[in-house]
């Protein structure tokens, strides 16, 4: 399937029960797809729902209605209705995600955080660590930090750990939430090159990039999320 990700008629709202049941509509009628080897960028103003879309595609947010069709191994799965076990399997093998912020696990070193998704797919831990070190090195993370838990790292250092973790596997779909936001120019270039490599390898990428220069360079297509706004009347 040349189109490993199809989003169809998806809507999302939040009901804030602690605020008197206020209904907060975010997006509706979201329709798009991402092809293998393509990098699609979600654009639009802050609060338009870009991150929410990525989170729905990762199974982290529920959806109100619609379908999220993902090619998972030799099947097509609707993530919008998949059970937790299936979502976990899809995350292990098919969809990778670089979140905006790293969630640190106490007492686990940077290199092990990066190696973990590869180890979870059956790569021997030593080989996974070696690959993790290659990536951390490419991203210029000082070697002294590799064996430390990232809790005390700077924003940019944590983000590079997060990027390495997301890029280490060969997942056919990769979601990127502002991976370059807290990086300097040199490391931004590294990430742009890594994205280019993923495209060459036939990965379907869907990302959010506020930096216009980065966006211009990686995007094959930009989708303006405000077109899906559920707050048009306001």
């Amino acid at each position: 399937m040349a189109t490993p990700l199809v989003v169809s008629e998806v809507a999302k709202s939040f009901t804030m029960h602690l605020r008197g049941g206020t209904l907060l509509p975010v997006i509706q009628d979201v329709n798009f797809s991402v092809k293998a080897g393509e990098c699609v960028v979600l654009g639009g103003p802050s609060g338009a729902g870009k991150s929410s879309i990525l989170k729905m595609l990762f199974g982290n947010y529920g959806v109100d209605c619609g379908q999220i069709l993902v090619k998972h191994e030799d099947r097509v799965i609707d993530l919008a209705s998949a059970d937790p076990r299936t979502v976990i399997d899809v995350r292990r093998k098919t969809i990778g995600y670089v979140s905006q912020f790293l969630r640190v696990v106490p007492r686990v070193s940077a290199v092990d955080i990066v190696a973990e998704p590869l180890a979870a797919r059956g790569t021997p831990i030593e080989a996974a660590r070696a690959r993790a070190e290659e990536l951390l090195s490419a991203l210029n993370l000082p070697r002294e930090l590799w064996s430390l838990p990232p809790a005390t790292f700077s924003g940019g250092e944590q983000q590079r750990v997060n990027i390495a973790r997301g890029f280490i596997t060969d997942h056919p779909i990769l979601l990127l939430d502002e991976p370059t936001a807290s990086l300097d120019a040199k490391n931004r270039e590294v990430v742009i090159a890594m994205i280019e490599e993923k495209k060459q390898a036939g990965v379907a990428l869907l990302g959010i990039f506020h930096d216009e220069d980065v966006r211009e360079r990686v995007a094959d297509r930009i989708i303006d999320v405000s077109g899906f706004s559920a707050r048009k009347a306001a």
Binding site: F14, T15, M16, H17, L18, K55, G59, N60, Y61, G62, P84, V87, I88
Partner: peptide, 15 residues
């Protein structure tokens, strides 16, 4: 899914 329930809780009590 644990992170779904924690990050997008639906029920008033879970929220």
């Amino acid at each position: 899914l644990t992170d779904r329930v924690l990050d997008d809780p639906r029920e008033p009590y879970t929220q």
